[in-house]
């Protein structure tokens, strides 16, 4: 991490927005490579998380330098952990990788009620709603949010992706989610495909 931070600080010292943009692009490519190695079973979660931590630190240094202080977004994702569940590791890894892929991510945090998910969809008009759930005892919260989206006629305006230890593809099919992500990198790949289609 130290050498990457040093390199980012060197770029920052030039005060050149284009150099910062180039560095961010290079970093994004590197993170995608990490993701691919993870999916191929060459790298493991600890390496994925550490790369995500390096990414967070690096982006903090480089992003303010580019014009407007924000990266150009390829889409908006609202994401949160469902009501009754306070776990956020998987969600946070997904956020790191989705941000590095160019998404604007609205993180609602943990223990997010159905009402807060619905309100965020109304306010931010995301292309994707991501819900995370580690506990089997809270998995039905996902179905409640999807039903409420339907009731409020918002379902066809947003794709729903779900992930977490308690969930399976079978569960996703049962509650009517658009996709199930077994891990954060696959989740990022899915939303990237949606944004380009």
């Amino acid at each position: 991490m130290d050498s990457t931070i040093d390199a980012a600080n060197s770029v920052a010292a030039t005060d050149d927005p284009q150099a910062a943009k180039d560095a961010i692009d290079a970093f994004t490519d590197a993170l995608q490579t990490v993701g691919k190695w993870f999916q191929d079973g060459e790298w493991f979660l600890a390496e994925l998380v550490y790369a995500g931590e390096i990414s967070k630190e690096t982006m903090k240094i480089l992003t303010p330098l580019i014009e407007g202080g924000t990266l150009e977004s390829i889409g908006t994702i609202v994401v949160g952990t469902v009501a009754g569940d306070l776990h956020d590791l998987g969600k946070n890894i997904f956020i790191s990788y989705a941000k590095s892929a160019g998404f604007n991510v609205i993180d609602l945090g943990i223990d997010v009620s159905t009402d807060r998910f619905i309100e965020a969809v109304r306010v931010h008009k995301p292309q994707t709603l991501g819900m995370s759930c580690l506990l089997t005892s809270t998995d039905m919260e996902i179905g409640k949010v999807i039903e409420e989206l339907k009731r409020q006629q918002l379902r066809d305006q947003v794709k729903v992706i779900i992930g977490g230890a308690a969930l399976t593809q079978q569960f996703a099919d049962g509650v009517g989610a658009d996709a199930f992500a077994p891990d954060a990198v696959t989740g990022t790949d899915i939303v990237r495909k949606w944004s380009s289609s």
Binding site: G41, W43, F44, L45, A46, E47, G90, A165, D183
Partner: peptide, 12 residues
Amino acid sequence: GQKTGPLMSPEQ
């Protein structure tokens, strides 16, 4: 382990 593999490599 997590859903798709170990949290850390066997070597680590």
